[in-house]
């Protein structure tokens, strides 16, 4: 049973205090995406043996989602970090490399701006029907 440190409240929480959320750093695609892109976003997951980045929520705690870098085979935890991060941080990458020198990031290392990953436009002016339902 894992112990992960919530980067928001600094607490080492055990797995029963956490809610798992699957693979981290998925990039949302919405309307306008191709079937292949959308399928990949919805269903394709890496499932590696080794270094992996995951979403966890400190559910019985501060309620914040955070990300964890972990080895899926040895369960070694390389670090936890903010969910508001498009890619694993440099610190996390460095921490992984200390133990896994041969490991290579598989994302484009160009730093992404810390902003919304998608920007759906809200359209106003639509009148929605109202249902008599509670």
């Amino acid at each position: 049973m894992l112990i992960l440190t919530c980067p928001y409240c600094g607490i080492s929480a055990e797995e029963t205090e956490l809610q798992p959320g699957g693979e981290a750093h998925l990039k949302r695609v919405g309307p306008g995406s191709s079937d292949t892109e959308f399928e990949s976003y919805l269903f394709a997951r890496k499932n590696p043996k080794g270094v992996h980045f995951e979403r966890w929520r400190h559910a019985y705690g501060c309620g914040k989602w955070f990300l964890a870098a972990r080895d899926t085979a040895t369960l070694q935890v390389f670090g936890t970090y903010s969910a508001q991060t498009p890619h694993p941080t440099d610190e996390i990458v460095a921490a992984i490399r200390v133990h896994r020198p041969d490991w290579q990031p598989d994302w484009d290392s160009a730093p992404a701006a810390a902003s919304s990953a998608s920007n759906p436009a809200a359209i106003s002016g639509e009148t929605s029907a109202e249902s008599p339902k509670a």
Binding site: C9, I11, A13, T16, E17, A59, Y60, G61, C62
Partner: peptide, 9 residues
């Protein structure tokens, strides 16, 4: 400390 007591927050 926020945690759980048995099955509740």
């Amino acid at each position: 400390r926020r945690t759980r007591a048995a099955q509740v927050a």
